[in-house]
């Protein structure tokens, strides 16, 4: 079993999903979370270096594990953020046939996607992010960390 005692948010590592340039913004998010979808639309416009970390809360969002596995599987084909953007842009179509439709739209290999999203490796990768969030004290999503999060914090 993993150690889930308190620990700082880990710095960026080679496995992190990162895009953009600017100050660092680490986002712990749930792909089935409405608040995250709204925040993501705003975050995507920021001039920041955004790192996405998985924080699926399955009991709150039963479809979340499948969506995080799908994003990670898309990432294995170089389209992680394309899948995240797609899932947040249209939250009403998340069952498997709709995921396959997204895979087609993103030009991914469906056979490989199907294998990857059900793989132990992907499950471990998603859980790894989740556990760093737990250790950092994340209780709700989205949870933002890093200099860019501080810079935009409400001063009031």
């Amino acid at each position: 079993m993993s150690d889930l005692t308190s620990a700082p948010v880990p710095p960026l590592g080679p496995d992190d999903h990162v895009r953009g340039e600017g100050e660092l913004l680490i986002v712990y998010a749930d792909l089935a979370c409405a608040h995250c979808a709204a925040a993501w639309a705003e975050i995507a416009r920021r001039p920041a270096r955004v790192a996405f970390r998985h924080f699926p809360v399955a009991s709150k969002h039963p479809r979340a594990p499948a969506l995080h596995a799908a994003a990670e599987a898309a990432g294995r084909q170089g389209r992680f953020f394309a899948m995240v953007d797609s899932l947040y842009a249209d939250r009403g179509h998340v069952d498997d046939p709709h995921l396959w439709g997204r895979v087609e739209e993103l030009g991914l290999d469906l056979t490989r996607f199907e294998a990857d999203r059900r793989s132990e490796e992907v499950a471990v990768r998603v859980r790894g992010d989740f556990e760093t969030g737990i250790r950092a004290g994340v209780t709700t999503t989205p949870a933002l960390f890093g200099p860019a999060a501080m810079a935009t914090a409400d001063p009031g």
Binding site: M1, S2, L4, A58, S59, K60
Partner: peptide, 17 residues
């Protein structure tokens, strides 16, 4: 309360361990 109990459910196996 919903958020709290949902979150703890995610680590219940580790708590029970």
């Amino acid at each position: 309360c919903s958020d709290q109990l949902s979150l703890y459910q995610e680590v219940k196996p580790e708590i029970e361990a």
